[in-house]
Simulated scan of single mutants.
Amino acid sequence: METIAERLKSAYQTIKQSAVDAHRPPNSVKLLAVSKTKPVSDIVQAYEAGQRLFGENYVQEAVSKIQALQDYHDIEWHFIGPIQSNKTKLVAENFSWVHSIDRLKTVQRLNDQHSAHKTLNVCIQVNVDNETNKAGLAVTEVLDFAQQVAQLRNITLRGLMCIPKANTSAEEQQQSFATMAGLFSQLRALYPEVDTLSMGMSDDMGLAIRHGSTMVRIGTAIFGHRA
């Protein structure tokens, strides 16, 4: 059975090869290790293997991990799940990044509750396939929303995030990723600080990288299936 360190090494090799195959620099894609539901000991193993970016979905679980690992000063914590209004303060105080911004009220609360001495990096979540049961903005809503987010003092708009529809054909996946790539290009042209397209997971990261992803969110391929 492979160790977390071995699986992490394999994931990095896959990312680098996918970037090269897409005629991109091998270091142009970051790996966000999704550690939700996994114990602190798994995060430590990944950290000891060189991983520094970790993504969490559940606020209370994440905060307990962050507190347990507070001596690991160079960990960069990313929140990638839905945010309830009563949890924005915890997110603002504990995370460097939020990938799941899709409501103005939420991002305004994060702005007001985040430390004025540093900015909170955010990505707008896009419901690229218009699924009724999934969070995120419609593609046509993103640019207007971005204009509002960009005005907030303690928030830095860094890019976009999406979770494409599951169990679709390769052609449908490709169309979703191509749509995101086009939207990302439009956003970058408007805001020079935008540099992040959070797109692709364990099963589709190669295709996502081919379409310009700069950050892939990998959980299962590193930590194994959730119990």
Rank of each mutant, 00 (worst) to 15 (best):
D129P: 04
D129G: 06
N130R: 14
N130E: 14
E131H: 11
N133P: 01
N133V: 00
K134Q: 02
K134R: 06
L137V: 08
V139K: 05
E141G: 12
E141Y: 08
V142G: 08
L143V: 14
L143T: 10
D144E: 15
D144W: 03
D144L: 12
D144C: 11
F145W: 01
A146Y: 10
Q147C: 10
Q147T: 14
Q147R: 14
Q148I: 08
Q148L: 13
V149E: 00
A150E: 14
Q151G: 00
L152D: 05
L152R: 00
R153G: 02
N154W: 06
N154G: 03
I155R: 01
T156S: 14
L157A: 03
G159D: 04
L160S: 07
L160G: 00
L160P: 02
C162I: 02
C162P: 05
I163E: 05
P164H: 13
K165Y: 05
K165T: 13
N167H: 15
N167Q: 15
N167F: 13
T168W: 07
S169P: 03
S169V: 03
S169T: 15
A170C: 07
E172I: 15
Q173L: 13
Q173V: 10
Q174T: 14
Q175G: 03
Q175L: 14
S176Q: 05
A178I: 06
A178T: 11
T179M: 10
M180T: 02
M180D: 10
M180S: 05
A181F: 11
G182N: 04
S185G: 07
S185I: 10
Q186G: 06
Q186D: 13
L187K: 11
A189G: 03
L190W: 09
P192Y: 06
P192E: 01
E193M: 11
V194P: 12
V194H: 07
T196G: 03
T196N: 03
T196R: 00
S198Q: 09
S198N: 04
S202E: 09
D203F: 10
D204A: 00
D204V: 06
M205L: 13
G206H: 02
L207S: 02
L207W: 09
L207D: 05
L207I: 09
I209H: 05
R210Q: 15
R210I: 01
H211A: 11
S213Q: 01
M215V: 12
T220I: 04
A221C: 00
I222W: 00
I222Q: 01
F223D: 08
F223R: 11
